[in-house]
């Protein structure tokens, strides 16, 4: 009962964030986007700023846009925001504050056979770092176009593309091959999310890749009490992400592993006051 309540709390935080980020309901009705001052603020999760409902900015879109003009101005503000999000929360943002993560988790609830994590999913989880380096950093710097937003981002297609095209005849006429490619990619990712837990987050999300770099340093997140932990590895075995240890770069800090720990060794909190455990958990996949 208590663990169900903890899962429900996280779900409510995800829903509240998704609604807060996209509360400009008149935008959906009119097919326009919000143009108020709140758009100068970046939210930490993936949420396209061309979504008619979006009242804040997307960190990835803003970063790529800043890199486009970095020849003229170094993007201090954007880098500072991302570093701050990373160092304070790391991938806890993925587990609690990302609307696209919520969409995938809800799709995974559809009762079908599921693909379990294995050595191949772990290898594929490295792809997101390549996407970060190439599409988010290199392509904007070299080719002066937002590579990830333009060719990959499913949140842009789902939240921005479809709602805007539905309401705007002029935009529908401009949609061509690129929109077809992005729509196809979106469908593939959404369908895969039914069978593979958080498929986009695990294999493709450059924001998750970036925040994962802070897994050792972030101030707040999942902690393991080494005095209570008996190294049974249940937490890693039951985790649906490709983790080798609770709190590593693949851990989205959702806290679902707490219900599996018989020793009550796992908790949320400030990470500085509990020392790191000696051993890694056994990988029984």
């Amino acid at each position: 009962m208590k663990t169900r309540w903890k899962t429900l709390k996280r779900r409510w935080i995800q829903i509240i964030c998704a609604v807060l980020y996209n509360c400009n309901l008149t935008g959906f009705a009119k097919g326009t986007i919000y143009q108020g001052n709140l758009k100068s603020i970046c939210i930490p999760g993936l949420n396209c700023y061309s979504c008619p409902g979006a009242v804040f900015s997307c960190p990835l879109g803003s970063l790529q846009s800043a890199l486009l003009s970095s020849k003229y101005r170094f993007p201090y503000y954007m880098l500072g925001m991302l570093l701050l999000f990373g160092i304070l929360l790391g991938r806890l943002i993925c587990g609690f504050l990302c609307p696209f993560g919520l969409v995938q988790e809800l799709l995974y609830k559809i009762p079908t056979k599921k693909l379990q994590k294995n050595v191949w999913t772990r290898r594929l989880s490295r792809l997101k770092y390549v996407i970060l380096a190439v599409f988010v950093i290199l392509i904007p710097l070299v080719f002066l176009t937002p590579g990830f937003c333009k060719y990959i981002c499913p949140a842009g297609t789902l939240e921005g593309g479809f709602p805007l095209l539905l309401k705007n005849e002029s935009l529908r006429q401009l949609a061509g091959r690129l929109f077809q490619w992005k729509a196809l990619l979106l469908v593939i990712l959404l369908v895969s999310a039914v069978f593979i837990f958080r498929s986009f987050c695990r294999f493709f999300c450059p924001l998750g890749a970036f925040y994962g770099l802070f897994h050792k340093m972030s101030l707040f997140g999942m902690r393991i009490d080494p005095e209570k932990c008996n190294d049974c590895g249940l937490c890693v075995r039951h985790c649906r992400m490709d983790v080798k240890k609770v709190g590593d770069a693949e851990c989205i800090q959702c806290g679902e592993c707490r219900k599996d720990c018989h020793q009550c060794a796992l908790s949320f909190g400030l990470k500085h006051d509990i020392p790191e455990p000696e051993k890694k958990y056994s990988d029984n996949i």
């Binding site: 143009q35 100068s40 396209c48 800043a66 503000y77 954007m78 842009g156 593309g161 690129l178």
Partner: peptide, 21 residues
């Protein structure tokens, strides 16, 4: 450097790349 204004300037215009145009 007026960074928030730069973000705002980009975010208040429809990003055609983002929506697949």
């Amino acid at each position: 450097q007026n960074g928030p204004a730069d973000i705002w300037n980009k975010a208040v215009r429809i990003c055609y790349e983002c929506i697949g145009i």
